[in-house]
Design a protein around this nucleic acid. Sequence first.
DNA 1: CGGAAGATTGAGAGTTCTCAATGCCTGTGG
DNA 2: CCACAGGCATTGAGAACTCTCAATCTTCCG
Lengths: 241, 241
Amino acid sequence: MASAFLRKLVSAGESRNALPAEDRDLVLSVCDDVRPCGARRDIISEGDRPDYVHLMIEGWSCRYKILPDGSRQITAFLVPGDFCDVHVTLFDQMDHNIGALSDSRVAFISRARMSRLMERPRIARALWWSGLVDEAVLRSWIVNLGRRDAFERVGHLICEMHARLRNVGLAQDGAFTMPLTQEELGDATGLTPVHVNRTLRRLREEQLATFNRQRIFIPDVGILREAVSFDPNYLHLPSQV
Amino acid sequence: MASAFLRKLVSAGESRNALPAEDRDLVLSVCDDVRPCGARRDIISEGDRPDYVHLMIEGWSCRYKILPDGSRQITAFLVPGDFCDVHVTLFDQMDHNIGALSDSRVAFISRARMSRLMERPRIARALWWSGLVDEAVLRSWIVNLGRRDAFERVGHLICEMHARLRNVGLAQDGAFTMPLTQEELGDATGLTPVHVNRTLRRLREEQLATFNRQRIFIPDVGILREAVSFDPNYLHLPSQV
DNA sequence: CGGAAGATTGAGAGTTCTCAATGCCTGTGG
DNA sequence: CCACAGGCATTGAGAACTCTCAATCTTCCG
């Protein structure tokens, strides 16, 4: 049920040993309130002061902001094992939205339970760690948007999601499910859907990656990474492969 | 000496009362190892495993990454009161660089002292809070780069730095010192220096802001904010003005 | 005074966007 | 089982924004 989350906890930090059984049990018991969220529905909206912390169990969601002119910028993708809002507990209100991209299942964790979770040093440390990774991902997106062209941006995003999903057991060697439309891809990469389409065509033509019916195929991960200059070090993953 | 830092601590959080005297004294004593850093010198480099946490006391620095083609992307500006690397203590190594932009003074804080600081609930909470703000700023930069044109990007950055500097007492009503070249502005906004120049000209012609010899003047902050759709809520500042 | 870094401007090239049309796939209703 | 509607993907063509290259000007400093 919360297996992606467990995998993520284990991979976060230098000591890559399995979690103590009691930690494991606590995690599982704390994730017993799982609720479905339909695609395109908001999990949390700007201005909310949520009572629960939300953890992705299944499906993808995203952080996003809507601009005055109606355009949207996605600032992060959240996949199983990712927390939506550990941080916001401190703020008076959310300063951005989180919306489900596909039909998802989300664990609702009360503050009390969250505190109990944070009392375990191993878990607290792993959560702290993955918060830092989230921040590193934000920086890498800034680099992407600021200094790379459409081709590298889209390729880079594909590489990142592949690496992150592998880490929680949701990607095979060079294939994974990406439940996004080309428009959503554009909202994340700062491109128009039309240009995303042309970019995906180029990736396909150069046999670097294909995107068809929500499935990504990467013939050779090493070659794609090379082509778009993707270096996974910022994700601070175990194997770095 | 660490007055910007103190101001920032006070402003971070809902309770905007002055810091208890003992907290104040601790902060001051912990910031007694202040070292100069010349402009354009790195404070910390990618791959480092720093022994100290670094706190900006005077001057500006920036986080940045160099890409394979030699271009640079700045992912954050650090001004007095900002920590450079609270977070990295957990990671094995820095995944980006921090470089001084102007002649600066930086406090070196050992891990032991840092722990002592974090034992004070009020301070720990304020640091946690400002870490969250840093993250919100990263998201806002992503929105900036992804969905705004050059004019809004530069204007938005000016508004942000103005608000942040006001918060620590380093900006007047509509004026502050910004020790950047147009090239550095471009590295932060994802533009070329040439285009930054044209953009600044437009801001000047429309009487929204001028940038001359490292001084920014904003005739009317409200009008500028309106023109570039800047909403300071993501900074979670006290007055929001 | 001379040199170097940074700012400014012009002109042409390139990437990405906008607008618009067409094609494809899926689910629904007859 | 088929027709149709709606959402999404795909393609074309011209416009817009930003970049590149290159020259000139200004400021700062030894």
